[in-house]
Design a protein around this nucleic acid. Sequence first.
DNA 1: CTCCTATCCTGCGAGC
DNA 2: TGCTCGCAGGATAGGA
Length: 267
Amino acid sequence: MPELPEVETIRRTLLPRVLGRGVVAVRVREARLRAPVPADFAARLVGRNVADLRRVGKYLLFDLDDGGVWLVHLGMTGCLATRSPGHARHDHIHLEFSDGTQLVYNDPRRFGLMRVADGYPEELSALGIDPLSPGYSCEYLRDACRGRARPIKTLLMDQAIVAGLGNIYASEILFHSGVRPSRRAATLRRREIERIRTATGAVLERAIRKGGSSISDYRDGEGRSGYFQLELDVYDRRGQACHKCGATIRGRVLSGRSSFYCPSCQK
DNA sequence: CTCCTATCCTGCGAGC
DNA sequence: TGCTCGCAGGATAGGA
């Protein structure tokens, strides 16, 4: 579920609830996530304080005041939210903070990831440029596309190249760029790459302003739904009319992921 | 290298 | 109503 706008929304809503708080209790009800939650997870978190909450790609990093990092990836269906005591189905991990705040990790499909690192988590060094950072430039994209036969949508979703885009926003960005998802990256013209770069920021920032997209179960850090799903132009709109030109939106599988585009607006 | 497929897991809607 | 099938926002180990 969560792509960059959803993770960023969770970060923003959680930040004031956890900043400066100490972790006083951790309960792991279900450790079988994508990688098992380490046995010492609770012991390593209790007694430490949250100094900052950052996002890197689709990861959340709770910086601890002794240099450690509580690393969270929400996978496909993970939610991290403050909540009153009591538990629901798929509430896998509970935290209690020094001021009584309860934080719950809920993840039906258990594709998430959670651990405590001593310093900056090594797996993050494999990530590409964050699409909201200055490094996401035309030159960077042009270099990434050079010589690549893969479809541009697959390239945009490659976390080692662009960190944070997923299936929804890759389709939306390409719609606003006028570029078909199946276009081979190496065939893109300079002006098309420029449109992709521009559309990326516009789509992501608009989605963040709407609190992300709640397709089925995504909620922000306080349990609220997002509203950007109401503004999606192509994602999951196969057979419906294009918002710009009225043509029928098409769907096609690329690299195992369903992709959507307007055959008239996108070349 | 580079790219695609299958897989992890649960839930839900479509079709029968 | 209840069953089975296919598909779902992600990441990654394999194989071609």
